[in-house]
Amino acid sequence: MNPSLHGIIPPMVTPLRENGDLDTHAHKRLITYLLRGGVHGIFLLGTTGEGPSLDHGLRKQIVSEACTVINKRVPTLVCITDTSFKETLALAQHAKEAGADYVVLASPYYFPISQEEFQEYLVALAPRLPLPFLIYNMPSCTKIHLAIETVKKAKALGAIGIKDSSGNRAYLLSLLQEFRDDPSFSIITGNEALLPEMMQKGGCGAVAGGANFFPKLFVALYDACIANDRDAVARHLERVNWISNTIYNVGKQESKYVKGTKCTLSVMGICNDYAAPPIGQFNSTERNQIIRYLEEFSYKDEYTIK
């Protein structure tokens, strides 16, 4: 296992003000909350962080301020995915200068591209990246599902791991099988429910969206997996699945996962729930549903961070 890349790495939301600026106080408060929750790393500007919806100046501000607060206490990962090759490199360079540890790269979005075209893109980009990089499989947002051969090509070009957010169990298991003899290549799931199974087969951890609001729950699940405590795994996994069936399923829009995550943090008093266009906020009915779910969960008991 790559010792620097393991465990629970929240894809941190980006606290915004109503005018779209970074809420710097809430940003620091959220980072502090996550660190106190025992997370093993923090992932900036991913899907949950609304990275593609933010202007380049704001992205750089987020990275700079986050790295200052984190201060190397855990690894900082920065998503540099962009439609522009030049801007991708610029954000990667800024991440290095700010003190980040890794960059994370999905394929450029908007234009559908082939596996061969993405491999050629990596050939051009990888040697110019100033930090170690992971690739990011996010087919629902990028129009391409990274083939195993493409992942192998990325590894040959220097990738130290992959974050798989396809939600495809068979694909994740095929990754674990393909790279089973190379523990230095970190395989991290974006699907929270698959964490126990993938850990049993050599996976390294999860970029878990729910760890934004319940970091202690996800860290407890990870620790139980490491200890092979089946009873604890089952108990914590039941709570994780409950989140998927409740908080992530409020509302009818495709954006409900991001909205639900931000709304939950807002109800908990950690940051507000303003989102970058085109994503908006929950209406009052949806927000009240989140409130009821949190009361049902009794989050102030077992998973309170003191």
Rank of each mutant, 00 (worst) to 15 (best):
S266Q: 11
E87K: 04
L44W: 05
R128T: 03
A95D: 02
Q289D: 07
G210R: 01
S166Q: 08
G49N: 07
D181E: 15
F179A: 05
K256D: 15
A275R: 12
L35N: 04
A126S: 10
Y109M: 09
A90G: 05
I148H: 05
L175V: 02
S140E: 15
I9A: 04
I144F: 08
S165I: 00
R73L: 10
D164G: 02
K143H: 13
F213W: 09
G41V: 10
T14F: 08
F133N: 02
L237N: 02
I188S: 08
K252T: 14
M12T: 14
G167H: 09
M1R: 07
A126W: 01
E178D: 13
V63C: 12
R180H: 13
L172P: 00
H94Q: 00
E296G: 13
H145A: 10
R36C: 11
F213P: 02
S244I: 12
D164E: 01
V267Y: 03
D101I: 05
V103Y: 01
K306Y: 13
G51V: 00
L194T: 09
C271V: 07
I305T: 02
P75I: 03
E65G: 06
H40G: 02
T246I: 03
K143W: 12
M199D: 04
H145L: 08
N19L: 06
R292M: 06
S174E: 14
F297Y: 11
T47G: 03
G20I: 01
T68C: 12
T304F: 15
R287A: 08
V103Q: 00
V63G: 13
H56Q: 14
L45N: 12
P52E: 06
S4I: 10
L30V: 04
D101S: 03
T261V: 15
I160R: 04
E178R: 08
K143N: 13
